[in-house]
């Protein structure tokens, strides 16, 4: 997993609420055992018209947002399925951070596990950021160490990420490796549990 400390990059406002995982990457792009190259399917039903050409009205197709590495969206982003293709598609497209008033639970976990930073800000702050991006230079400076988002007008908005996720992101740490260090505790649990609930173990 790639570490995330600070990112000063183009940010795009995605003015939609409850963006679900089927919209983030439609089903027909999922038929592959690979995690890479899913970026082409990101928001495909919005990005492309029926004839396969780009829809110029979609935000990520507009020249000023093309290089976006940050997305600012409305509430409940990522609802729907548990498929990790959603964060993989975002990551492959180049998105490393998302800002919204809220995120759906499974998506939230999946994004962090893949090195994408999710930032929850108050509804008013998200609205203000979207306005700033549309009116001014569309860039944000996201600093995970300082836990703050700075817009080009100089306004700074603090955010909070829980300590474990923050450390893992800052260091690019592999969660499974960390958990495998708990091996003795897992073995002890299973030994005791086998006595209590023998029918669980075949």
């Amino acid at each position: 997993m790639e570490a995330f400390r600070r990112l000063d990059a183009v940010a795009a406002p995605l003015r939609r609420a409850s963006v679900d995982t089927d919209q983030i990457i439609p089903m027909r792009y999922l038929i592959t055992a690979s995690r890479a190259a899913l970026g082409v399917g990101l928001f495909a039903d919005w990005r492309y018209r029926q004839d396969g050409r780009e829809d110029p009205s979609f935000v990520l197709n507009q020249p000023r947002y093309r290089a976006a590495q940050i997305l600012v969206a409305d509430a409940n982003f990522g609802c729907g399925s548990s498929r990790e293709h959603a964060p993989w598609a975002l990551l492959d497209y180049g998105i490393r951070a998302l800002i919204a008033p809220s995120f759906a639970g499974i998506f939230f976990d999946n994004a962090f596990k893949n090195g994408i930073l999710l930032i929850e800000l108050a509804v008013e702050d998200v609205a203000a950021l979207m306005d700033l991006l549309e009116r001014g230079e569309p860039r944000l400076d996201v600093d995970l160490e300082a836990q703050s988002v700075t817009a080009r007008d100089g306004s700074v908005r603090p955010f909070r990420v829980d300590a474990r996720r923050r450390d893992a992101l800052l260091q690019g740490l592999d969660e499974i490796g960390m958990s495998l260090r708990m091996q003795p505790a897992i073995a002890a649990y299973q030994a005791a549990d086998r006595e209590r609930r023998p029918w669980i173990y075949r």
């Binding site: 399925s81 548990s82 498929r83 990790e84 964060p87 499974i106 976990d109 999946n110 596990k113 893949n114 969660e175 499974i176 958990s179 495998l180 708990m182 091996q183 897992i186």
Partner: peptide, 13 residues
């Protein structure tokens, strides 16, 4: 439901 990274985590731990 869990994501694929979690599937891998459960496989290993």
């Amino acid at each position: 439901g869990i994501g694929t990274s979690e599937v891998e985590h459960v496989l290993a731990t």
